[in-house]
Simulated assay, not measured.
Amino acid sequence: MKSEKVKVNNGWKETSLGEVAVFNYGKGLPTENRKAGGVPVYGSSGITGFHSEALIDEPGYIIGRKGTVGSIHYSNKPFYPIDTVYYLTKQDIKCDFRFFYYLLQTLGLDKLNFDSAVPGLNRETAYSLRITIPATESEQKAIAAVLSSFDDKIELLRRQNKTLESIAQTIFKEWFVNFTVKGEKLKVNPKTGLPEGWRQKGLDEIADFLNGLAMQKYPPENEVDVLPVIKIRELKSGITGQTDKASKKIAPEYIVDNGDVLFSWSGSLDVVLWCYGKGALNQHLFKVTSKKYPKWFYYFWILEHLPFFRSIAQTKATTMGHIQRHHLSESLAAIPDSDFMTFADSKISPVFEHIISNNSQIQTLSKLRDTLLPKLMKGEIRVKDF
């Protein structure tokens, strides 16, 4: 691979990736050999499970070698990298540890795949990449501090959202599943098993479940009028450099926006509040909406039935696990009378709106960080006093 000529800024130096870092091979750990524990096991797609013992007893970076080539992950605690990844710890890096993380983001490692049979990142190819970095560790630290300030705020908002969702879900379960309000059981009709004035409906009666399109049938016509394709992978990872693109010329109902409820009914079953901007809804995903019931109501009812849906999917031994629409009909939701719904909505909707607002802030911060990242790492923007 021929390296491009790189521009060297004043106070920076040109070198190669191999001169500042050592990529270590992970170690195989088949699923059947893993023992119950809290140590995260990392593959190229991220955490693939847990084990009782760590291979690496300190924080480190994990880089996809096979499979999801060039993916970059960070473990802030002891971890076990398997044989589809490389890993690096502080002793393997000859520059500031945090700075190196951001440097990795700019190298395009996901594009260094030269194995046509099985996607693979060759270590020597990665080592040969020419890079420029600040000559002093103090400037490296200053750059990392700027970028880390964004990531720290994003992480704070994400933790806050987890807490808010946990609070809202606890309230939901108490009121709509356990029929308990302020520690007191609601009076239940012995014939229906529901509080007086309540009724039951299938999930497909309280919300519309729109299945996505086969987006490969809507390829981009140019590089401008495109949307990222939201597949099952994007529910967890968001929009990445490996996300497919589709034409914007699709029916508006198949365009996803922040705050939409997405439910993967096939493969890895999950339900999420989308927070990564506009995208095109791919097949195997439902966009869930309702003209009658608030978003939190159908979101938490899907979440309540998710263990049941996953158990169904696990029985599909010969095909990719999935559920069918009749399973939505068979999964019931307790519908309160209008007064109780109004009361519940006044308590839970503000929490949900706070979550969506936080997600919007995360998007804004992420875009600003991603705009600054290449400029700071190339020295096009210098940190004050350097």
Rank of each mutant, 00 (worst) to 15 (best):
51 H>W: 10
62 I>V: 15
36 A>H: 04
91 Q>C: 11
90 K>L: 06
46 G>M: 14
54 A>N: 02
24 N>V: 00
23 F>C: 13
38 G>H: 09
84 T>P: 13
71 S>K: 12
54 A>Q: 07
54 A>F: 04
96 D>G: 01
31 T>P: 06
92 D>K: 06
78 P>V: 00
16 S>T: 03
44 S>V: 01
97 F>P: 05
77 K>T: 03
26 G>R: 05
63 I>H: 06
84 T>H: 15
80 Y>L: 09
88 L>I: 00
40 P>S: 09
95 C>A: 11
78 P>I: 00
16 S>V: 02
35 K>L: 12
17 L>C: 03
21 A>E: 07
41 V>P: 08
97 F>Y: 13
94 K>D: 09
87 Y>H: 02
39 V>N: 04
31 T>I: 09
58 E>C: 07
36 A>V: 10
78 P>G: 04
48 T>L: 13
66 K>N: 13
33 N>R: 15
65 R>K: 12
72 I>H: 02
26 G>T: 02
92 D>A: 04
53 E>P: 02
55 L>S: 06
82 I>S: 09
13 K>S: 07
47 I>W: 10
86 Y>D: 02
31 T>W: 14
42 Y>M: 13
97 F>S: 09
18 G>E: 11
82 I>Q: 10
89 T>M: 08
78 P>K: 07
68 T>K: 08
68 T>H: 10
87 Y>V: 02
30 P>R: 14
45 S>C: 13
70 G>L: 12
41 V>F: 04
76 N>H: 02
31 T>L: 13
63 I>W: 03
33 N>V: 05
41 V>D: 15
68 T>F: 08
62 I>G: 02
39 V>Y: 03
32 E>Q: 15
31 T>G: 12
91 Q>D: 15
74 Y>G: 00
32 E>R: 14
47 I>C: 05
30 P>S: 05
34 R>K: 09
81 P>A: 11
39 V>R: 01
89 T>D: 10
17 L>G: 04
88 L>P: 08
71 S>V: 01
18 G>P: 01
50 F>M: 09
51 H>A: 10
66 K>R: 14
71 S>C: 08
85 V>G: 06
83 D>W: 01
74 Y>N: 06
22 V>H: 14
96 D>C: 00
52 S>G: 11
48 T>G: 06
64 G>L: 08
47 I>L: 08
15 T>Y: 01
37 G>K: 00
41 V>Y: 04
18 G>H: 00
82 I>G: 05
69 V>T: 04
32 E>I: 07
21 A>C: 11
79 F>G: 08
71 S>A: 15
34 R>D: 05
39 V>W: 01
84 T>A: 13
41 V>T: 10
36 A>E: 14
77 K>H: 11
72 I>P: 01
63 I>G: 10
48 T>V: 14
34 R>E: 06
28 G>D: 07
93 I>S: 01
99 F>W: 11
33 N>S: 10
17 L>F: 15
86 Y>W: 00
27 K>Y: 11
20 V>K: 05
19 E>A: 15
97 F>C: 12
52 S>W: 01
87 Y>W: 09
62 I>Q: 09
44 S>G: 09
93 I>E: 06
98 R>F: 01
21 A>V: 06
65 R>V: 03
85 V>N: 07
13 K>C: 05
40 P>R: 10
88 L>Y: 03
53 E>F: 12
25 Y>S: 09
97 F>W: 06
66 K>M: 14
21 A>F: 03
72 I>F: 04
53 E>S: 12
35 K>Y: 12
90 K>C: 02
23 F>T: 03
28 G>F: 02
